[in-house]
Nucleic acid binder design. Structure first.
Lengths: 157, 157
DNA sequence: CGTCTACTTCAAGTGCGCTTGAAGTCCCAG
DNA sequence: CTGGGACTTCAAGCGCACTTGAAGTAGACG
C-alpha cells in the first residue's frame, strides 16, 4: 500500500488522522473530504485532506456538528492551506464560540463553588437549583440560568 | 390538575423543570427520579425531584451521560438537600472536570489565535493541525486534547 | 502468477437521549 | 355526572456519528 505522499490510501489517511476508515468514508459521503480513484476504484486522498480532517476534529471540539463543519469547510480552499483572509473570520467565529463556552463553564463553576460553601442544593437558596423557580416566577422562557448552549441536546418541546 | 406542592403531576414537573414529560418518564425509567402513584396510577412527584433534575441538567453540561449523572445522584439523598459533607466531593469532582474543560478550550482558543496570526492550517506549522503532538503532550492514551470526555464519540479503532 | 491484505459497496446495526403515536384511563371543573 | 384535558403504557421512530458484516475486488510483494 505504498503510495506517493500526495496519494494516500484510506488506510494511510486513517492512520495519520487517527480516524477509522469507516469514518473517513462516512465523511467523504458527507462531502467533508474528497478523493480520487485509482483505475481499480480505490480511493486516493491528497495530503490536504489531513488538514480538513484536523479542521473537522477541531470543529467537533467547538461543538459543531459534522454538517456545520462542512459549511465552514466549504468556505476554505479544499486543496491548500487557507490564507489569512480566508481563515480569520472562521477563527474569530470559533473563538467567540469558545469564549461563550468558557464563560458558561466558569459560571457553572462559580455556582458549584457557592454550593460547596453553603451546603447547598437547598431548595430555597441554591443558585444551581433554581433555574425553574426563576423560570416559574419570571414567566416562560428562561429555563436554565446558563442559557441555551450549544452542547445542549437538540430541540425540546 | 391542581395538587399540593409536594405532589407534582408530571405536567407540573415538566413545566417547572423545563423538560418534556416524555423526558421525565425516560429519566424515571433510568432511575434518575422517582414517583409515587395515585390510586388511578398517575405519577406524583415530590418537589425534591426538581433538585435532582437540576442536578442532571448540570451534569449534562459538565459532559456527563445520564448514566453517570445517575451514579452521582445515587450518592446524594433522594428526598432532601444534601449536606455539605455529601455535596462537597461531588462539587469538587465537577469543578475539576470543569477546570479541565476550560483549560482545553483555552488551549484550543490560543491555537486558533496562532492560526489567525500565521495564516495557518499549513501542514507543517499549525498547532491545530497535529493532534498527535497534542495527544503526546497530554501523556499516554490521551489521543485527543479534550481527554476522555464523554462528549467524544465511542471508542475509535 | 499467486497470494494475501487492504481495499470496495451496501445494508443494517449501535448507543444515546429522547420524541411520537396509538389506544386507552384518570380526575376535576362545571 | 359529564366532558375533555392530562394522564397511562408500549412500541416504534429519530438524528447523529459512526461501526459492522457480507461478499466481492485491487494491487503490492515475492
Amino acid at each position: 500500500m505504498t503510495s506517493s505522499a500526495d496519494r494516500l490510501t484510506i488506510g494511510e489517511l486513517a492512520t495519520r488522522s487517527g480516524l477509522a476508515t469507516s469514518a473517513l468514508r462516512y465523511y467523504e459521503e458527507l462531502g467533508l473530504i474528497t478523493s480520487q480513484r485509482t483505475a481499480g476504484g480505490q480511493r486516493r486522498y491528497h495530503r490536504a485532506m489531513l488538514r480538513r480532517l484536523a479542521f473537522v476534529r477541531a470543529a467537533q471540539r467547538v461543538g459543531l456538528s459534522l454538517d456545520e463543519a462542512g459549511q465552514a469547510l466549504a468556505r476554505l480552499p479544499d486543496d491548500r492551506a487557507p490564507n489569512a483572509a480566508q481563515w480569520a473570520p472562521v477563527a474569530r467565529a470559533w473563538q467567540r464560540r469558545i469564549d461563550d463556552q468558557i464563560a458558561e463553564l466558569q459560571l457553572l463553576r462559580r455556582k458549584l463553588g457557592g454550593c460547596v460553601g453553603c451546603g447547598c442544593l437547598s431548595l430555597k437558596t441554591c443558585a444551581l437549583y433554581n433555574p425553574d423557580d426563576t423560570a416559574a416566577t419570571h414567566g416562560p422562557g428562561a429555563r436554565w440560568l446558563l442559557g441555551d448552549t450549544p452542547p445542549e441536546p437538540p430541540t425540546r418541546t
